[in-house]
Design a protein around this nucleic acid. Structure first.
Length: 481
RNA sequence: GGCGCCAUAGAACAACGGUUAGUUCGGGGGGCUCUCAAUCCCCAGAUAGGAGUUCAACUCUCCUUGGCGCUACCA
């Protein structure tokens, strides 16, 4: 079997989103599992909507996920250029070939006229297809009309055959009736090739052997492209159409589902390994009960034939669960590195001594972290804390507290080594003395020390704050109640 | 409207045509002498409906229903 070549061709009309990312991932897994070549190409024939910043975003997202390409944008390769806008002469050549071999023809029908035809067909419950009006125009007429400056498009002439065969690794071999298609446009009035023509030429020239993409291409585009391959005399690749990813309302994922750019997931606190692991399970499973896989492990285990046919819903909660799992696997040193930039940005982390302190804090908080952004938040809650907010003071203004506060101060002040155990015992003893325990002891204490109702073990927080700061806070409070 | 794809708990995935339909997330409850998280234990929850093939159907076939998708001079 010849070497496998796959491609990922996003159009730069928006940031790379979840659906794209999964397509890229599955292509990559399939490709590397079979030691193939991964081509990353940009489909920017839609001049109106394509923007360079989106290309950059797509590149960044791929890098974030850890998907490396062997040929393509940024790095070049044997089959370049890798931007469709730079491949016009190639398309021109193929269009001419199609024209010369009678596989395509010039059509002068206006968009409005065609639309009217379609409407009429629809009202008569017929498939809305192009009438074929310009199919057999004499060459001489075509020439003069073009010479007269009449606008035209170029259409592909459907061959005289019953059906198109599509080999799909996920859905099996399918036959599409040619009658369900019409003479589709391959060159627009402005002279730009359409998607179907451009992808086909690119895939053929780049010697792509397997096309893995979303199911939304299955019905409309695939048979057209196969026909184009055949007309051009190129070998037809093997397809694999993956199920769609849906939002929680079961419709195609879009912005309104919070379908952020992939690069945003990093900013929101997700680890690429968690994201990739979760994505892989959207439509694929190893057929076992294992659930944690690194990218390399996924490559080893991935089989396209194990990809499901039913659509999957993107579950943000499960993504978070994966994220927390991977975060817990990290060393404190790694967690620190992840948070470092944000810590500096927020004005923490001013000298070496701080780092030791943060590493210590991280060790105690590891289990409480779900998103990487939690790290900074937790540290902030310890480091920048200045005492309970005045509006919450009434909540702790109880007779017990008036007794407890001095007891706490006394026990914390004892001249012993400040350690987690020491703090824990001090709190217990103070509680015993003032006859408060359980919720009535811990919850007000938590409120006093963090101004929050929940968080990590409060004695650890107190320990991490340090003796001096804790006493300051308690004493300040004592004077207020 | 036409055509296509899909159908196991709220979600993601399992189950050679063969006991009691399994796992994870989420939900509920409990333990861990404060909360949340982690961890441990427990609970609820599914084969869309109907025919057929078969000794036997989640699994195969057909129909119905439902969901989604495609039906562009967007990709």
């Amino acid at each position: 079997m010849s070497k496998i070549r796959v491609r990922f061709p996003p159009s730069p009309t928006g940031n790379l989103h979840v659906g794209n990312a999964r397509t890229a991932l599955f292509n990559y897994l399939f490709c590397k599992h079979n030691e193939g070549t991964f081509v990353f190409r940009i489909e920017d024939t839609d001049r109106e909507r394509s923007r360079d910043e989106y290309i950059q975003n797509e590149i960044d997202a791929m890098k974030w996920m850890g998907i490396q390409w062997d040929e393509g944008i940024e790095i070049g390769g044997q089959h370049g250029p890798y931007k469709q806008s730079e491949r016009m002469s190639l398309y021109q050549e193929h269009i001419q070939r199609l024209l010369d071999t009678q596989h395509a023809y010039v059509c002068f029908c206006s968009a409005e006229q065609v639309e009217m035809d379609r409407e009429e067909a629809r009202t008569n419950s017929l498939p809305p297809r192009y009438s074929g009006r310009c199919r057999n125009l004499p060459q001489s007429e075509v020439k003069t009309r073009i010479a007269n400056g009449e606008p035209y498009v170029i259409r592909f002439k459907l061959p005289d055959q019953n059906d198109v065969q599509v080999t799909d690794l996920i859905r099996g071999t399918k036959f599409f009736p040619v009658s369900s298609l019409d003479d589709f446009i391959i060159v627009r009035t402005d002279g730009m090739p359409t998607y179907n023509l451009a992808v086909t030429v690119d895939d053929a020239l780049m010697e792509i052997t397997h096309i893995i993409r979303g199911e939304d291409h299955f019905f409309g585009n695939t048979p057209r492209q196969v026909l184009l391959y055949e007309a051009l005399g190129y070998p037809v690749p093997i397809f694999a159409h993956m199920p769609m990813i849906l939002g929680d309302d079961k419709t195609k994922l879009s912005k309104r589902h919070g379908a952020f750019a992939i690069t945003e997931y990093g900013n929101m606190g997700f680890l690429p390994e968690a994201f990739v692991n979760y994505m892989a399970f959207l439509g694929w499973s190893p057929k076992t009960e294992e659930e944690f896989f690194t990218l390399d492990e996924l490559i080893q285990r991935f089989e396209v034939t194990n990809v499901n046919t039913s659509p999957a819903i993107f579950d943000y909660e499960k993504l978070k669960w994966y994220n927390a799992h991977y975060l817990r696997q990290k060393s404190c040193e790694d967690l620190f590195k992840i948070a470092q930039e944000d810590l500096i940005a927020k004005g923490f982390l001013t000298n070496e001594k701080d780092k030791t302190f943060y590493l210590q804090a991280l060790a105690h908080m590891k289990d409480y972290i779900v998103l990487t952004t939690d790290i900074v938040n937790y540290i902030e809650s310890i480091d920048a804390y200045n005492g309970i907010q005045p509006d919450r003071i009434p909540e702790i203004q109880t007779p017990e507290m008036i007794e407890l506060l001095p007891a706490l101060i006394r026990h914390f002040s004892v001249d012993e080594k400040w350690s987690p155990d020491f703090v824990l015992n001090a709190i217990r003893n103070a509680g015993k003395e003032s006859k408060v325990k359980g919720k009535h002891l811990w919850m007000p204490l938590r409120l006093i020390m963090t101004n929050e109702d929940q968080g990590p073990e409060i004695y650890l927080v107190i320990y991490l704050m340090g003796k001096e700061k804790v006493l300051d806070i308690l004493k300040a409070l004592l004077s207020k109640i």
